[in-house]
Structures are given as structure tokens and as C-alpha cells.
Simulated scan of single mutants.
Amino acid sequence: MSTGPILVVGLGCQRGCPASTLRAMLDQTLLAHGIELSGVGALASIDLKQDEPGLLELAEQLKLPLTCFNAGQLSSYQARLSHRSEIAFERTGCYGIAESAALALADRLGTTPATLLIPRQKGPGVTLALAVTA
């Protein structure tokens, strides 16, 4: 059992987004915040992306589990988001996939309520957020 904080990366992406783009965004974001990739414990997204090849390939590369949540599960995190996207809501039924998914999985894995360590970062066809819990 891990004694340190649990870090969860939440990811949203456009269809067909390659793993290399997701990985570059992840590496760049972690580097900018001084966080080691080895500290990340899990990846999260929305169930609409559970078959997304780039996400699955990234999870495989990193040897990390990818957990997907449905829009109903993610929408309960709306009040805790730093950014609400109307476009995301129209397309998915939740206001922010990356932040909501990161918070949802960190809440599930941890013993304390999760907080956003890195709010939504936007790259080419990718959104990413990092939640932490103890």
C-alpha cells in the first residue's frame, strides 16, 4: 500500500489523438510542475473514450491503469472544476472531462477528498489535469 500521495492524471482528447501527443502533453505538464512521472498512479477519462487507441496505448506505455467514468459520475464534480466547458457539456454531458475524471478516480483511490494539483491544461486535441489525494 502506498504511503505517499496518490496522483491521478485525467485526460480528454479528440478522436484519433495519437499516444505520442498525449505523452508529450503529460511529460511537458509534469516537467513544468516538477513532478516525476513515476509519481503518477493512474489515468482517468470518460467512458466515451474507453476504446480510444491513443489513450489505451499511453496506459500500456506507462504501465498504468486507465479508469473511465460515465457522464453522470463526472457531472457530480462540476462544482469542483476550475473550468467549465459548454462544448464538453454539449458533447459529453459533463463540463470538464480531464478535471472531473482525475478528481473522481483520486476520490475513489484515496482516503481524503481529492484536490486539483494541476488544473486543466489544454494542448492540441488534448486536455489534461492532475488530482492528488492521500
Rank of each mutant, 00 (worst) to 15 (best):
M1P: 06
S2R: 11
P5W: 03
I6M: 12
V9F: 04
L11S: 06
L11Q: 11
L11H: 08
G12N: 12
G12L: 13
Q14P: 01
Q14W: 11
P18F: 00
A19Y: 00
S20K: 00
T21P: 00
R23F: 09
L26T: 01
L26K: 02
L30G: 01
L30I: 00
L31G: 07
L31P: 00
H33T: 00
H33L: 01
G34Y: 11
E36P: 08
E36G: 09
E36M: 11
E36F: 07
L37T: 10
L37D: 02
S38E: 13
V40E: 04
V40L: 11
G41A: 14
G41C: 13
A42Q: 12
S45E: 04
D47G: 08
L48E: 10
L48V: 14
K49Q: 12
K49E: 10
D51Q: 14
D51M: 08
D51P: 00
P53L: 03
G54S: 03
L55K: 03
L56V: 05
E57F: 01
L58S: 06
L58W: 05
L58Q: 05
A59H: 05
E60T: 13
E60R: 14
E60F: 10
Q61H: 14
L64Y: 10
P65V: 09
L66G: 03
L66Q: 05
L66W: 03
T67V: 15
N70L: 10
A71I: 09
A71S: 15
A71M: 04
G72R: 15
G72I: 14
Q73Y: 06
Q73N: 08
L74V: 12
S75H: 13
S76N: 06
S76E: 14
S76I: 12
S76P: 00
S76A: 15
Q78M: 00
A79T: 11
L81F: 05
S82G: 15
H83K: 14
S85C: 12
E86T: 13
I87D: 11
A88W: 08
A88C: 15
A88N: 09
F89V: 08
E90I: 07
R91I: 08
T92Q: 09
T92S: 15
G93M: 06
G93Q: 06
C94M: 13
Y95I: 01
G96E: 05
G96I: 06
I97Q: 09
I97N: 10
S100M: 10
S100W: 05
S100V: 07
A101V: 05
A102R: 07
A102F: 03
L103Q: 08
A104V: 09
L105M: 09
L105K: 07
A106K: 03
R108Q: 15
R108M: 15
L109W: 14
G110F: 01
T111Q: 15
T111P: 02
T112A: 15
T112W: 03
A114K: 01
A114G: 06
T115L: 12
L117D: 07
L117P: 02
L117C: 13
L117V: 05
I118V: 14
P119Q: 05
P119D: 08
R120V: 08
R120T: 10
Q121P: 04
G125S: 05
G125D: 01
V126L: 09
V126N: 04
T127R: 03
T127V: 06
T127E: 08
T127D: 07
L128K: 09
A129H: 03
L130R: 04
V132W: 02
V132N: 01
V132E: 15
A134L: 10
